[in-house]
Amino acid sequence: MYRIRFHGRGGQGMKTASRILGSAFFEAGYEVQDAPRYGAERRGAPIFAYVRAAREPINERGIIQHPDLVIVADDTLVPVPASGVLAGVSACTVLLINSTEAADVWQHRLNISGPIITLPVAAEVEDRADLPYIGATCAGAAAQLIGVIPQQALIHAIETELGGLGSAVVERNLENALAAYELVAPHHGLASEGAAPHAQDYERPDWADLPLETARISAPTIYAAANSIEVRTGLWRTLRPVIDYSRCNRCWWVCSTFCPDGAIAVSADGQPQIDYDHCKGCMVCVAQCPPHAIAAIPEHQAQAEESQLAGTTGDPP
């Protein structure tokens, strides 16, 4: 059975990717199961989707624990633990990362022995949330890496899944998917079917007996105020608002008032300061700033500049 996981951000079309690949498998005569994993399906937040495919009816269900192929639409997610990109990745897992950095850089950085392939689509765009046709691109590359999906099945799958959006959309998605399909052609069939877990030799679950605990602690109650600030929603951001203080006119803190997340503090002398740990990158401040003193910078670019300044490479902000 093939077990494939797609990782991206809300809005990048990972559900579409899983559906295109699912349809392509189905077209190629496979039994298929595909599903998005909903939850915090907010724009920019990490999400994933998965596909299982086999010649026999599929009885496995739920999240894929041991993937044969992991596709990452946005390389900024790789180091984010909450995105779970590397969960269950073994030496048998093929990792496809959409990244401007080379595969060997990732190999070294992640210190994993399985094959890594990069797809340099990310270079073209500023806002990663708007990576155009990335779902189709990821699906196209995945189809080639799996190796059992004929090009025609991929084309038909895209027509099936996106036909409702009009022929122009289908056309552009096809172009991108087929380009990716060609691009990874040297790695044709690199991802192979994983085996079913063995009943003879398995890792025994370490079950715990739940102790009885008082209602004070065993009821779902939070004995704290505003501890949500521990959640770093800044990781959702694909664009970063940057204030040009030479143009900021210390107005009545328009940016701070309108920031939905309250992530812009204002100092005593009226100077706004953006909290990048929590700014989700909505760009309301950019749109509202009266003297247009806030610019939108691609997050991956901002991070690259930061790490250069810090003299390190690739660590998350």
Partner: peptide
């Protein structure tokens, strides 16, 4: 209950964030 020790450790972490006091927590067998 199908529930692993790792899952129990995970809820302990969440409880710490929720300001549940450690001394009140029970011990698992």
């Amino acid at each position: 209950l199908l529930y692993t020790r790792d899952e129990l450790l995970e809820i302990r972490k969440l409880q710490a964030v929720a300001h549940v006091e450690r001394k009140e927590l029970g011990k698992t067998t």
